[in-house]
Design a protein around this nucleic acid. Structure first.
Lengths: 201, 201
DNA sequence: GACTAATGTGGCAGAGTCTGCCAGATTCGA
DNA sequence: TCGAATCTGGCAGACTCTGCCACATTAGTC
């Protein structure tokens, strides 16, 4: 049957999901740095060696299957660029992501709480963004064709800034969870520049 | 004598300097991930255990004593804020840093080349920026008093964006070293927004 | 239903980073 | 010069991650 390839992947997906759940729960209880992979494995009823067959890294069990990585951002951005300017296109792209995140509010607020308990995790989170950025820059650069020599530099600045807006909005939301919607925070962050960036003192 | 406290710290500083030199050289030859701490230690004629008494982390031997961390950025920013708007003040603050960096062109271009050979290093570099950002936000936030509830969010966006501009300019410079001055790249990066951010397509 | 091949699993050994502990050497201040 | 603070090295250990090999499970075929 043509599903025969799929069944293995499905059970694999289920395993990943359960591992992610178990891990997140343990991290919430004891903290990330204080929870060795061995404990996650035994709590999930597998060997540590097997854990590393599902997630190449301890961090991956947290960041593995979540929106920013599970969405094809370059494609999304390309589409928005047909209708919008660079900055607005970035804004809309990440707005879409945050809309999708909003359907997983719970998981995300739990995750952000865990991330904020560990320096090493924050770093990993940033590294993810770097990778995202690297995939978006080549999409954006051709749209900034002016001096050409500078277009890559400008593209990188815009992309990184957009991701920064996104990220900042997120951690803000994580703290003031009850007061704000994620999407609103993202909008505020993105409009920071047009409003207050170059005001006089 | 009142120097008696100082002499120890001076020899300690010398040791740190030498370790940093040795390490950077080895990293250039073999790559960061391929150079264990043991090798750095033996190359410097000390034991691995002692290495960790000078630098708490393998990363610290690279990032330990360099401009961004060795300058009091909050103070610098505070001063610029008395004369300039938020964005311009950030621009000038980081411009000052890049001027200071320019006096160590060599060391920096070597370092950036090393950093770009390792993913884990990039992450560490970003984490440093996060810490910098966290020290600047409280300085900037009071200057954005409007809705108050959003001022912290906006301050964070501005600060992170500024650091992103700085960082992006740097890696750009690292690649096109011969064509550009660091300070110029920083200026270009910072003016990206006022020029091309919200243009139509 | 049985057989072969692919795939999943577990244990072991090892590299690498980093920490705590203790003993010995070095240096400092009186 | 002597006692005290400090520096150093070695040892053992925790933790993350990898390669290797043997064993079990499962899939597709006849």
């Amino acid at each position: 049957m043509d599903e025969s390839i799929g069944i293995r992947e499905r059970t694999r997906g289920a395993m990943r999901g359960e591992l992610a759940d178990v891990a997140l729960r343990l991290f919430e209880e004891r903290g990330y740095d204080e929870t060795p992979v061995d404990d996650i494995a035994t709590a999930a009823g597998i060997s540590p060696r097997t854990f590393y067959r599902y997630f190449g890294t301890k961090e991956d069990v947290l960041f593995g299957d979540l929106p920013p990585t599970s969405v094809d951002l370059p494609e999304l951005l390309t589409e928005h660029l047909t209708r919008l300017g660079p900055w607005e296109a970035l804004h809309q792209t990440l707005r879409n992501v945050s809309e999708q995140v909003q359907t997983q509010r719970d998981r995300w607020s739990r995750l952000l709480r865990v991330v904020n308990t560990s320096d090493s995790l924050r770093a990993g989170h940033l590294e993810q963004q770097m990778n995202l950025a690297q995939s978006l820059v080549p999409v954006l650069a051709p749209q900034l064709g002016e001096p050409a020599a500078w277009s890559t530099l400008r593209a990188r600045v815009l992309v990184h800034t957009a991701l920064t807006c996104f990220d900042t909005a997120f951690s803000h939301w994580a703290v003031h969870e009850s007061d704000v919607e994620i999407v609103d925070a993202v909008d505020i962050a993105f409009t920071t520049f047009s409003e207050s960036a170059s005001q006089a003192p």
